[in-house]
Design a protein around this nucleic acid. Sequence first.
RNA 1: AGGCCUGUAGCUCAGUUGGUUAGAGCAUGCGCUUGAUAAGCGCAGGGUCACUGGUUCGAGCCCAGUCAGGCCUACCA
Length: 1010
Amino acid sequence: MFATEGNAKCGPISLSLRARSCLLPAACAKLPVWRACAAASPQIKTKMESKDYKSTILLPQTAFPMKADLPLREPKFLERWDNEGIYEKIIERRASESAPRFILHDGPPFANGDGHIGHLLNMTLKDLVLKSRNMMGFSAPFVPGWDCHGLPIEHKVMQDKSKGGEDLTDPVAIREACEATARKFIAIQRGQFKRLGVFGEWETPYLTMDPAYEAEILRTFAKLVDKDLVYNDLRPVRWSTGCQTALAEAELEYDESRVDPSAFVKFPITDAASRLKLEALAGKPLATDASLFALIWTTTPWTLPANLAIALSPHLDYALFDGGEGTGVFLCAVDLAPKLPLADDRKVQLHGSTFKGSAFAPTVGVTTTSEGRKAAEFFAQHPFLDRASHFYAAEFVTAETGTGLVHIAPGHGQDDYNLGKAVGLRLLSPVDDRGCLSAECGVPELVGQYVFKANGPILEMLESKGLLLAKKDYPHKYPLCWRSKTPIIFRAVKQWFIKMDFRADALKAIGEVKWVPNWGENRIRGAVETRPDWCISRQRTWGVPIPVFYGEGGQPLMSGASIRAFADIVEREGTGVWFSTPDDVMAKRLGVYGAGRKGRDTLDVWIDSGSSHAAVLRKRGWWPADMYLEGSDQHRGWFQSSLSLSVASLAGDKDNPSGTPYKQVLTHGFVVNEEGRKYSKKDGALDILSLVKANGADMLRLWAAMQDYRQDIPMSKELMARAVDTYRAIRNTVRVLLGNLHDFDPAVHTQAQSAWSELDLYVYTRLQEVVRTSRAAYEAYEFHLAVQAVTRFCNVELSALYVDVLKDSLYCDAADDPARRSAQTVMRLIASTLARLLAPATPFTAEEIWDELNRHDAQSESIHLQLFPKADEAALSSAPALLERWTGLLALRSRVNEQLEGARRRKEIGKSLEARVEALPALGVQPDDVPLLRTLCMVSQFDIVDARDVTPSETAEAGAEIFVRRARGTRCIRCWKYDEATGADAEHPELCPRCTRVVTSLPAASVTAG
RNA sequence: AGGCCUGUAGCUCAGUUGGUUAGAGCAUGCGCUUGAUAAGCGCAGGGUCACUGGUUCGAGCCCAGUCAGGCCUACCA
């Protein structure tokens, strides 16, 4: 058996890799050479000469290939599912079972590009929810949707049109082009989502541009108008100068590395009364020739022309400071004065004592306006306009940066507006739609300048007047328009708003929703609590028009009734009718009298998607939905717009008093690259089609299922490779199970549990644990734990233990041996269980396994019509004792493996079947367990020996109770086990008794001469 | 600056209500196998469970603080 030095070069049987590399020249060490050498060896032929028993061995056979070829194989399943109408079939099946409903409402993606990896993650998670709920016995219909209106599409269309030199003024033409663009991308995305194996009503999705849907948007809007929640007002909004429209917060992105010029500006205090009051507060008079200033800080010098006031914190300490020669005395917060970036490191001198900012009452929200005005008789002079700038105390002023004195331009900031409103300031916003200063700014040289270009000239002007104390570049994040990428400005424009009067109701509804993960609740709560009135008008054409008319004096004419009248028209004709119908005709159709002209604004698209609770859910009787599932950015977006609109229009409903559109909200993080950063194009192709082509849908789905999606989700080639590894491990393990079922007909060969071996029962019990863990994980939407449980079971229990140990029985026992049939029974059960547990994650592969598993059954139906396996509670309840015993057995096996490895290293054995294990009584092995241990350790013999049989040196050397020796007897050529009785049969001199028995029972033809 | 989340092996993650020696997979190294073979098996190295303190008979887990990373809000006037 052992190769001698002489024939080692050609003896493949015992030649180790190490021996090879030692004995052969490097060039010959390559495998093909070695194989050729072995094939030519005469020894081999002699060995096989007697009889070829290989044909009597029941090796695995299966049509389930090792290589998945997912990109090629998956389309065939898609076609089959399409042909049999799998989605409809599932819905019908659950309906026939009177299954409870589970509604996952699809958040509509924008139809403005290819599906990318973010869509892939979101859609896969949705499908994991749907497929797993379906297999838990719920009826889980899925109506996908698309958000069709809005700036992203219109912007794209306008760019294309302007490139082509086309007309940009005809709203009807623009809308046609927008619709075509939306339809194009809906078709593309739909194809991609279907390709992922997502089941749903793909032929009848909901589109926010469908007339019926548009009508529901308007009807929802009408309800808000009925409740007097909608108003038209002049107030600052986020304005995109690039797109010339108001924007929602969710339509912004942030420039992380923007630098603006910050300026410390001196406002002269020339009013005698104000000067006297300040001297009194400081408790020390000023030199008569000393000039006095209020010092403010700003990062937007272009807003200075709109300055109407100065705000101070009521809580901060202020004082007058002497800046020394040429600077004068100025008012500044005490904590901030030393931090002023003065030239020459000049230090400021405190003049007199400090005083609280509350001296400049009113505090906004505390003091009434009339009293406030009276108290606020401090004022400074505007630095370059003939205007007083009054002092007020306001809570929002902080001591983080600046001077503690805030320049207030009510037309250019939210806080500024609120303060101005409280104290009765007018609204000045001398900037036009393009972001250029208008004549109202009061400085002729600046008129027509783009605001960010005007910063420089304004600073120069201040400097020339000696009113610029200091300037310093200030790096900060700054909001940009998500489409035109231009910096946004705050600008007062006449807009339509929704009053947040229902805020309390919204907050109450938030408390009734289950947020997963739970910090989502804080996030949306914060967003709703701080949200100012909702600016809902957009100066666009691709959207649902606000059906308002303006009378002669510009007064808006709109009512719930006129909106509903319009909705009824839209239901039939679509919203395009607003743009194609002359003003007077439209007014007449809506029954609006005294109307001058139609409004030109459209509704914020967040109203579109936020109305899906009405247009989709309520229409189908699905309101509220069981779940919304989107990325965490939607707390500010869809989660909030849906909640707001649903609560505002429907709170108090008898079946859903809180008016919430959803019972549960699941959120996921964003896909990032390996460094944890947002994905960029450099990181590789990320559109769904390329990803699917390269990996197959199941692989991508498995990747998605394996992630803890609550955090940001890293994606890279390496991490994808990990999913590939997992997939392969599962696939190969299942393949062995299937391969060993080649002669197993469940209807005929299934063995009762009472006939199973203890190993069968052990693995079966572990399987039940996997079922329990996995189901619980699906129920809690922790898909990665479900996948992990299955993977772990495949690797640890199946591949390394069960399958490995059972090979001898499966391959070499008689086909109908009860032990073999029992193992097959359990293996089939395992394969069937795993397939169903994996079906939501890898629907294609699961179906492929299911096909193979049910090849005997012509009636077999798709795995996606099945239910998840239920854990065998009886088995689990008796599990603890069994598992405890097996923990011991496997620990013993592990110790034996260590010793086998030692023997292998000493070149005493190769494969474990060449070994005999000797265990000392001290090890505590029960004699009854000896045959089981022999099987588990895959050795030819396992003996309990008296200590005296072991030489003292060995005992001392090993210090252990386990010894490995060469197996006794002769190797059976068929099963490779060593047995002293091998050769006892004259007919089969090279076989052990078991194999002799098996072979003898076979028809003679089965054994062929070699 | 405030709020929230996260920190366990080189990497990705498990770790049940606190309970013996903290586990998988991948990667690495060394072998075995050639009857799962572009597979499979074994062994090995690798962890002060971010750090510090506390509660407890006992802490990866509970509490407090520190540090690091991430997200959100405010970054503003």
